[in-house]
């Protein structure tokens, strides 16, 4: 299955803005983090097709996963 992965803010550094990622069997956001070497602690907001997602949520072919780091300053 193919998953579109969109990265935001500093997560783009060394990884780019957007990529299609191919998984043979099952896929979860956590598997994407692992493949892109993104520590879970660096993920503050995770959207799957625009909706709030879980790290272990099974993904479907064609899903778009958007990953945001924490932004907390004021």
């Amino acid at each position: 299955m193919k998953i579109k992965v969109r990265l935001f803010a500093t997560l783009r550094e060394g990884r780019g803005k957007e990529q299609m990622m191919e998984f043979t069997d099952t896929a979860t956001p956590q598997a994407i983090f692992d493949r892109l070497d993104i520590p879970s602690a660096d993920v503050a907001i995770l959207l799957i097709n625009g909706f709030d997602g879980k790290f272990d949520q099974p993904l479907k072919d064609g899903d778009t996963v958007s990953i945001f780091p924490p932004v907390g300053g004021g």
Partner: peptide, 13 residues
């Protein structure tokens, strides 16, 4: 409460 994954109190700032 619903959107934040509770990753951290501070951020990339």
């Amino acid at each position: 409460g619903s959107i934040y994954q509770g990753a951290s109190n501070k951020g990339i700032e």
